[in-house]
Design a protein around this nucleic acid. Structure first.
Lengths: 213, 213
DNA sequence: TGTACATCAGTGAACGCGCGTTCACTGATGTAC
DNA sequence: TGTACATCAGTGAACGCGCGTTCACTGATGTAC
């Protein structure tokens, strides 16, 4: 194969290379030079497409949020609307995403280096949480839950995010190798949801567990 | 003041300098050279007391866990034994610690750079979680809760850790500036604890909120 | 269809930087006799 | 109490390294006439 002078898809190729390198070496270990090596171009080439290193990483993070949203949507749509299993499935999708790309997950939710956040990243992040709120609202409507769906969504997010962080950072493992994150998640999620729902729906919600993951 | 050739307390001085620099610049921005500058010694001096850079940071992290445990103990002991407010107070102490030293908190619970974890760090970490389990067991005993105290402690830890991470990383703020982490935490913790406790104790637990933070 | 030329996406060499670590050294401390 | 000497905690200069970014450049593309 001959190597053409013009790459043609260099912008996306650099983003893909950056994401792969973040996955392999972590966000700290990532260097622009590495990404250039991987894409097969000189270290000056990226500056035709990006202002600096951070701009590439912002793009990676934005695509990460889009993928996370897609993952949760895929998990939700195969589960019955209004069931707590559907909410739980989204939580498992969140966890699975982070396990597949822990360093990317940390970049998405970790603090930025004091620079103001990228606009596209914020939009994608809000879309992602917006989907969670929407699903929680559907659940609440279907189960006649009185209460602020936003607050409930925040609590579930908090729980799932905690379980995810402690898993990918190896903190559960440092305490004991007997800990099952799936049990923690499903047990606590159900507890949070059940304590809200009115009587009569519980049998319906109690089945359908352990679908995903 | 004359500057003596021998520092005398250089080991602890370097640990203190490292902790201060991590607080100021983050764990990434921290360099051994910076710590030497701050302690007023040459860059070769640390090698009399530590094998390498990581050994200093391990020491900082271990002291961080000790401080976190102390903070939670201090919060717990001023609140009535057996009250849910006591458990909640520990959660707030966890959050306060992380807000005061976010970068240190991230080092404590973030993943290590593939090297095996330091022994002292693991011990201090287990001590810290052990205290939480112990307090949850007391709560369960006082409120006649049937259920695995370890699992309950894990769920509470997960929730509090999630709320703490999302707070210090600015993720709540990215969604909306109206979000109150205190409300999320106390609401969800109470819900997790109440759904376990038997009848009759609820009035006792419902007061005593909003003590700390 | 052919040619002139502007535009654009790459090259490759070089820069300055701060880092972690090593080296031979030197000044201070403390112990043996 | 005094002296010789081993030990130890520092110094300061140097190293090699990989990084992000800039520079003048060159090869390819595409458009005007």
């Amino acid at each position: 194969v001959k190597k053409p002078y013009h790459h043609g898809e260099l912008r996306q190729a650099l983003i893909d290379a950056a994401r792969a390198l973040v996955r392999e070496k972590g966000s700290d270990g990532f260097s622009l030079s590495d990404a250039c090596r991987k894409a097969g171009v000189s270290t000056a080439a990226p500056y035709r497409h990006f202002a600096d290193k951070h701009e590439i990483l912002d793009e990676v993070v934005a695509q990460g949020f889009a993928d996370l949203t897609l993952g949760m949507q895929a998990a939700a749509t195969v589960l019955p609307a209004g069931a707590s299993a559907r909410i739980l499935g989204m939580g498992h999708a969140y966890l699975s995403f982070a396990i597949a790309e822990p360093a990317l997950f940390r970049m998405m939710f970790g603090q930025k280096p004091d620079a103001e956040p990228d606009h596209l990243v914020v939009v994608r992040g809000k879309d992602c949480f917006g989907f969670v709120v929407q699903e929680v609202m559907s659940y609440c409507a279907a189960n006649h839950v009185e209460g602020d769906a936003m607050l409930i969504a925040l609590q579930l997010w908090t729980l799932v995010h905690g379980a995810t962080s402690l898993t990918i950072d190896g903190d559960y493992a440092k305490i004991s190798d007997q800990i099952e994150v799936g049990q923690i998640l499903s047990d606590a999620s159900d507890r949070l949801l059940f304590s809200l729902a009115r009587r009569g729906e519980q049998g319906d919600q109690a089945k359908g567990k352990d679908h995903v993951e």
